[in-house]
Design a binder for these strands. Sequence first.
DNA 1: CCCTTCGTGATACAGGTGTATCATAACGGC
DNA 2: GCCGTTATGATACACCTGTATCACGAAGGG
Lengths: 202, 202
Amino acid sequence: MPRTVDHAQRRATIADALVRLAARQGLHTVTMRGVAAEAGVSLRLVQYYFETKAALLHAALLHLERQSHARWQARLRALPSPAPTRRFVEALLAEALPADDPSRDFHLVWTSYAALALTDPELAAQPFVAGPNRLEQQLTEALRDAEERGELPACADPAAESARLLALNHGLGTSVLVGQRSAASAAAVLRYHVDRLFGDER
Amino acid sequence: MPRTVDHAQRRATIADALVRLAARQGLHTVTMRGVAAEAGVSLRLVQYYFETKAALLHAALLHLERQSHARWQARLRALPSPAPTRRFVEALLAEALPADDPSRDFHLVWTSYAALALTDPELAAQPFVAGPNRLEQQLTEALRDAEERGELPACADPAAESARLLALNHGLGTSVLVGQRSAASAAAVLRYHVDRLFGDER
DNA sequence: CCCTTCGTGATACAGGTGTATCATAACGGC
DNA sequence: GCCGTTATGATACACCTGTATCACGAAGGG
């Protein structure tokens, strides 16, 4: 084996293995040996790159977060340059629904982490509060701009609409995750909501 | 010790201990010994009343479900006899938001179970799909009735509105659970939504 | 009054877990 | 061409977990 390997890439490989495993068997079944096997490396290697299991779990969470951010940015870039607010909103919602398998895996593991964070204070604060907060703020501003440009009925409260949109989206996401409704049906409900928000079809 | 004890009550006591523990330290830290200690009984007793850990977890979940059902029924009974649809809807939503500490504990543990069920097939199907489905159907009918009585704008689609309401509610619930927003703020968003649904304040 | 059954305690056991230790190979700088 | 740092393998070690076993007290039916 060569002496100097790309640490970042190795860590990413191992983190990916963890996520795959967590998506398949549940985050609570994840073990150091399991991750090592899934990644095709020795237990010692996992220990080497992540000193402790807590560190591994934490790193994998950050890994997920970065991936999600990247996907979201890519989706934004795919939009026409002066993006109509409605397109922006729809892109946001589409990304946050577990549509295909990879997306489902991501949301499943993310949700498992969120459940863990409910009682694990040192895992909690950052991603599951700050992230949504930033998103909600961003969306609020977009809606406010849209209102000034007349794309939105003036009686709507941007902050409330933003909160409503994101909560609805999240709720639909989990209902898809547990298998209560299909992704298509969730998307339909979302479209219904967005239609009303922008004052169409009423 | 007397020879014949009330099995059901003992099981309830132990299940309650499990829920308390799970609410405090997370469902993933729950152990047979831990439950025994929390309930103030011996490990053997937990083993005696629930043969296996899986059985214990399952029983505690059913216990939670029954409790939730009872609370929900009580809230319904407290309503005026010909309940206005809006009151009905508001009662539904109030019950599903983690307002006080007991309710928070319940929703926290319930959510942990839901996360587990995402990857554990034999735990999954019943409560997390059938329950919400029944609720959604019930709500749809209530909205349909309200529409015929003119309490609701005729352009609303009862099925879609019902799905929207419950998803929104669930989304808000989890955002309260993770500490992103306060229960009061969630209730405000909910009121905003219900106002629009019933055509008020617009 | 005995004896079968129910309830409960103490303890043991095997397996899996995170983590630590020891050794050693591969490479780059001098 | 040696040497120290980096990277990796093999193995050991406590510890905790779920579960099983053994023993015994208490009660009610015959």
